[in-house]
Structures are given as structure tokens and as C-alpha cells.
């Protein structure tokens, strides 16, 4: 066999594998959308869930999912940003301590989410008496999200060539000024992509939330935006079942007559939301990059 034939066969095999992966993904996505989309309606997206009768919606769960996502990001992004900047820009790369920290981040990122959930349950819900609440859920998700987000910030910063840092110092700018005004803006599109992709993961997470944010979605009064009131949507101490947890729950113990339809609809919403996150991530990082670098 000559090199040309080998190359042809290899190309063929690789195409087949790639095609298979795409096929599986399309089949999954198609199945979820075909099953779910016919159940979607404005009523379904906004109405509260029904426990025993048909016709319930996912309004509260949808709101909870987004609110929890925002809370999680508000807590985890600044920490991840700081940690990522430290690890890539300030830390002595040869130090043993830094090596240990990196290994720990890696281990933490492969921790099963149900373990994060049980840890969160014992520590936040029980020990710290936060109860089943959005806050417990957000902190648990921060644990779940932080390692990956930190890595993604660090990787984004690493792709900025050292020439840029040297350019900054040669102009008499401090390391902090150079990072803040040169390195971060240049890395921002890639950081944003990381944030939005991790948002997709957080949005679809169920196992870490079952024992932390809880499995119930008490009625909310959408006219009351005082975060200290029990029925206010903004109250962070209320239990909050998210969309992903809702899907899990309907499928394991749902007794409403249209459980299958609700589950299919909710799954479709979840998948569409995650897809939207991904498309938005690409779009925003392009726009941001153009804005920050004034390139057309």
C-alpha cells in the first residue's frame, strides 16, 4: 500500500467516525425537539406546574433555572476570574504549590455532580441551616462550576502572547495595568465563550440541585419584587425546583396524566435554551472582539 492509498483509507475512516458522531447528536436532538416542540405554548412556558391534573406549565421552574444561573454566575465568575488571573499571570509557574493547586482544580472538575450536591446538602442545607434554597443551590453550583470556569479563564489568558505583556512593561505600565487594559480585553471574547458554555452546563444541571435547591416550586407572586418577602421571585432563601430537576422528578415520580408531554416539552425548552446560549456565546464574542480591537 502506498502513502496515497493509506491517506485515502484514513480519510475515509475519519469521515465515517465524524459522521457517526454527528448522526448520534442529530438523532438525539431531533428526537427531543420532535417530541417536545408540539407541546410548547405560551401557557406551557408561563403557567405553574400541576401536581395531579393535566395542563400544568413550567413557568416557575423556568424562572428558577434562569435566576439560579444568574446567582451562580454572580458568585462564581469573580472568583474564577481572580483565580485564573492569579494562576496565569502572577503565580510562579514552577512552584510546587501551584502544581498542587492545579491538580486539585482538575480533581474538583471531575467530581460527580451528585457528590457536589450531597456535600452541599450536608454543609449548606444542614450545617449552615440555609435549608433547601436558591442560595444553597447557587453555592453548590459554584463548587461545580468554579474549576471549569477557572481553567477556562486561565486558558483564555494563556493564549495571549507574551509579546503583549512585554509591550505593556516596556511602556512603563505596571503588570496590573497591562492585565486590566491589554490582556483581559484581548482575552475577553474567549473568556465570554467559556462563561456562556459553562452557563449551559449549569442550566442543565440536576443532580447537584436535588438536595440543595430542593424539589419543590412554591407559587410565586410575580408582582412582588422585594427579595425579603417569602413569595417574591427574587427571594434567595426559598426552595426552587429548576427545569432540569423538574424533568427528573416528573420522570421518576410524576403522577399528572400528561407527565410524558410535560417532560418532553420541558426537555425541549432546556435543549433550546442551551443551544441559544451557545449561539449567543459565538455571536457576543465576535461582537466583543470587534468592539475591543476596533477591527472590522
Amino acid at each position: 500500500m502506498n502513502a496515497k492509498q493509506v491517506d485515502k483509507i484514513a480519510t475515509g475512516i475519519l469521515y465515517t467516525i465524524a459522521g457517526f458522531v454527528i448522526l448520534v447528536l442529530l438523532a438525539l436532538l431531533g428526537y427531543i425537539l420532535v417530541q417536545g416542540v408540539p407541546n410548547l405554548s405560551w401557557h406551557f412556558l408561563t403557567a405553574p406546574a400541576e401536581a395531579f391534573s393535566a395542563g400544568g406549565g413550567i413557568g416557575i421552574q423556568l424562572f428558577n433555572s434562569f435566576y439560579l444561573l444568574i446567582l451562580t454566575m454572580v458568585i462564581s465568575f469573580p472568583i474564577a476570574l481572580g483565580a485564573g488571573i492569579y494562576l496565569n499571570e502572577y503565580a510562579n509557574q514552577k512552584s510546587k504549590v501551584i502544581e498542587v493547586i492545579r491538580t486539585m482544580i482538575e480533581i474538583l472538575s471531575s467530581l460527580p455532580s451528585v457528590v457536589v450536591g450531597l456535600f452541599g446538602f450536608l454543609l449548606f442545607v444542614v450545617q449552615l441551616k440555609l435549608g433547601f434554597s436558591l442560595l444553597s443551590g447557587a453555592i453548590a453550583l459554584t463548587f461545580f462550576n468554579l474549576p471549569l470556569l477557572t481553567r477556562s479563564v486561565e486558558e483564555s489568558l494563556r493564549t495571549i502572547p507574551n509579546l503583549q505583556r512585554e509591550a505593556g512593561s516596556a511602556l512603563g505600565l505596571s503588570r496590573f495595568e497591562t492585565i486590566g487594559h491589554v490582556i483581559l480585553p484581548a482575552a475577553l471574547p474567549s473568556i465570554m465563550t467559556g462563561v456562556v458554555l459553562s452557563a449551559g452546563r449549569v442550566f442543565g444541571e440536576a443532580a447537584a440541585l436535588i438536595y440543595t435547591a430542593g424539589q419543590s416550586a412554591p407559587a410565586l407572586n410575580f408582582a412582588d419584587w422585594n427579595p425579603f418577602n417569602a413569595t417574591s421571585p427574587l427571594n434567595v432563601m426559598r426552595p426552587a425546583e429548576t427545569l432540569a430537576v423538574h424533568i427528573w422528578k416528573i420522570n421518576s415520580e410524576g403522577i399528572m396524566p400528561d407527565a410524558a408531554a410535560v417532560s418532553a416539552g420541558a426537555s425541549a425548552v432546556l435543549v433550546i435554551a442551551v443551544l441559544l446560549f451557545n449561539f449567543c456565546a459565538r455571536y457576543f464574542s465576535k461582537v466583543l472582539y470587534r468592539q475591543l480591537t476596533s477591527s472590522k
Binding site: L163, Q164, E166, A167, A170, P185, A186, T293, S294
Partner: peptide, 13 residues
Amino acid sequence: GMVFQRPNPFAKS
């Protein structure tokens, strides 16, 4: 001041 071997303009205007 210093100028380096490879041009290193910032990703700015």
C-alpha cells in the same frame, strides 16, 4: 523605551 523583534501592537486601534 524598548522595541522588540516581533511587532507587538495591542489589539486596539
